[in-house]
């Protein structure tokens, strides 16, 4: 998919509250073979998953692929979905795992410089476009693990415990990564 294909739709503000019970019901419907449950889950979580993917890859096309990997995995999983108590965490964990798997492949795109178009997509229609691009550029300089924690905790509203479970680290490591990331961002944004 080309970049020209999708003008970014930006929403500024805090994350929408999650509705675990509704998602658990959607999982049950999915296990019963109800395909519309997948559409409901997409509508509820695609935005957060896409941003998570963007935080990891910094590229919209790769974030798209990660979102698709999550829903393909959900469609294939079947009955074990009945045991999931926090569907949002579960889906973000699938995305994280898909990203790790992608990193292991030899042909995977490693961390590389992001171009101005990608930054503009991340910055979006914020209050001040220039400063937003500066912030996006600063965030892009962080390691993927730190960008991921900032995205999950600050933007999507996951607790450090949840973010730690999603990324496969302890709550303390997640909190530490977040603190280090913010410290680094303060330095980078102070320079600009």
């Amino acid at each position: 998919m080309t970049k020209e294909g999708f003008p970014p739709v930006i929403i500024t503000g805090v994350a929408q509250p999650r509705d675990d019970q509704r998602d658990v019901d959607s999982f049950r419907r999915l296990v019963r073979g109800d395909r519309e449950a997948l559409a409901d889950l997409y509508d509820a979580h695609a935005g957060a998953l896409f941003r998570h993917g963007m935080a990891l890859t910094r590229r919209p096309t790769e974030a798209d692929d990660l979102v698709q990997a999550v829903f393909v995995k959900l469609a294939k999983t079947g009955a074990p979905l009945l045991a999931v108590r926090n569907p949002a965490n579960y889906m973000h964990r699938i995305l994280h795992t898909a990203w790790i798997d992608g990193q292991r492949r030899p042909a995977a795109t490693r961390e590389s410089a992001v171009d101005a178009d990608d930054l503009r997509q991340v910055a979006g229609a914020a209050i001040d476009q220039d400063s937003a691009i500066d912030i996006a550029r600063s965030v892009a300089e962080l390691p993927a693990a730190q960008r991921e924690i900032v995205q999950l905790h600050l933007t999507e509203g996951f607790s450090f415990r949840e973010a730690g479970r999603i990324t496969g680290v302890s709550m303390f490591t997640a909190a530490s990564r977040y603190r280090v990331a913010l410290e680094r961002l303060r330095q980078l944004m102070g320079k600009r």
């Binding site: 970014p8 919209p60 229609a125």
Partner: peptide, 23 residues
């Protein structure tokens, strides 16, 4: 400042693509 930068949303075509692959 980070929260004010805006949150990118997935492209509208992605929904059809994902559901076509997963359903």
């Amino acid at each position: 400042q980070l929260l004010a930068t805006g949150r990118p949303e997935p492209p509208s075509e992605l929904r059809a693509r994902v559901l076509a692959a997963a359903m």
